[in-house]
Design a protein around this nucleic acid. Structure first.
Lengths: 143, 143
DNA sequence: CTAGATGCAAACAGTTTGCGTCACT
DNA sequence: AGTGACGCAAACTGTTTGCATCTAG
């Protein structure tokens, strides 16, 4: 089974038209190491489809996120969030309204690393995000 | 000791001029629940200093972050980051170059909640960010 | 054939910068 | 008095939208 068939099938499962642009965007995301930004994806996709528009990349990323084919790494991008709390603590994040609430470090089991990290990586701190939907948002409609 | 003195002292410790704007911005951040964005801070500060400029709020937030008086909640704001990895996993985040690398879920000790959450909060998943400085960045200069 | 996808350009939101004036030390 | 902070406006970056055209199903 070729990757073309895989992609068409995947789109069909998610009720999406299998366009050439979509396929190249999706395969490009898979091919990029780490976690690319829309710009990075656009730059690489452009080499295969020079006429593609940045707006198309954005629209399709959004489509893939909505359909669950991709996931967003950082929920609170788009606006800086500032934290005056100097005590070690973790966060409760509402995926819907983007609210961030502190929880104490002792509210979660202690987190420790079990394996070696890439050489040279120096750990400063470990931050736990408990992602979900807050009471206020879940009592209203769910988009 | 009044809060005015506290603030002047705090500024002195960090080698910052203790201006009225700075004090109001700082106290406003402390007063806001959750983790306010620059806009939210600006809106509230404006009630006390109607003539303040949004740029001043931004400049001072940056100053506070640099001096360690405040911390940034989300490192990767400013650009969306996309993740095609459907396996449960965690992230290694470089605070300097903002690179994000996957680590396997089994690379950290299992994380569990030990206390009750605010009523109605529905957990979808728990995400661990190991924050630090990657090998490439730590071998170069440290700003 | 028709709903939905693309490409373009213009609009937006969040953030940064340059510069003249003002205020803290 | 001098360095650095403030306020304003303009510039920038990342993202979204409206609309005419094109294409997958």
């Amino acid at each position: 089974m070729t990757s073309v068939h895989n992609f068409r099938e995947l789109c069909h499962q998610h009720d999406l038209a299998a366009t050439h642009q979509r396929q190249v965007i999706y395969e490009t995301v898979l091919s990029l190491p780490g976690h690319p930004s829309p710009e990075m994806i656009y730059e690489k996709v452009r080499r295969k489809i020079p006429s593609i528009s940045l707006a198309t990349v954005y629209k399709n990323i959004q489509t893939f996120l909505d359909s669950g084919m991709l996931r967003e790494v950082s929920l609170h991008h788009g606006a800086m969030r500032v934290d005056p709390n100097h005590e070690p603590h973790h966060h409760l994040v509402c995926m819907h309204c983007k609210s961030i609430t502190d929880i104490e470090e002792s509210d979660v089991t202690p987190v420790r690393l079990r394996s070696k990290l890439p050489r040279g990586f120096q750990v400063r701190r470990i931050s736990v995000d408990v992602l979900g939907v807050c009471g206020a948002c879940s009592s209203i409609a769910k988009p």
